[in-house]
Amino acid sequence: MKFKAFPIFFVSFLALGLLGLFLAQSTYLENKGYDISSLQFTKSYVLNAIMALIVFFAIYIFRDKYRDLLGFFFLGGSLLKFALFFIFLYPGFNQDGSLERLEFLVFFVPYGFALVLETFFLVKLLNTV
Rank of each mutant, 00 (worst) to 15 (best):
Y45P: 03
I61F: 13
F82T: 10
E100F: 11
K81M: 12
N94Q: 11
F104C: 05
F13T: 08
V46F: 11
Y28G: 06
I87P: 02
V109K: 08
E100K: 12
L47A: 09
F22D: 03
L70S: 05
K2P: 14
S78W: 08
L75D: 07
Y66P: 00
Q95D: 05
L102H: 02
F10R: 04
F121V: 02
E30I: 12
F56N: 01
T119I: 10
D68H: 15
N31M: 14
F41E: 04
L69Y: 15
S98Q: 12
G33H: 03
V55F: 00
Y28Q: 08
F3T: 13
S12W: 00
F120L: 15
K124A: 12
G76H: 07
S38W: 02
Q25W: 02
F73M: 03
S37E: 12
F93D: 09
K81Q: 13
L14Q: 06
N127A: 13
N48S: 03
F82L: 15
L16I: 12
L102F: 00
G97A: 02
F85C: 00
D96E: 15
L75S: 09
V116I: 15
E100R: 12
A24F: 15
K81G: 07
K2H: 14
S12R: 08
L117H: 00
A114N: 10
A24W: 15
A52H: 06
D68V: 12
F108W: 02
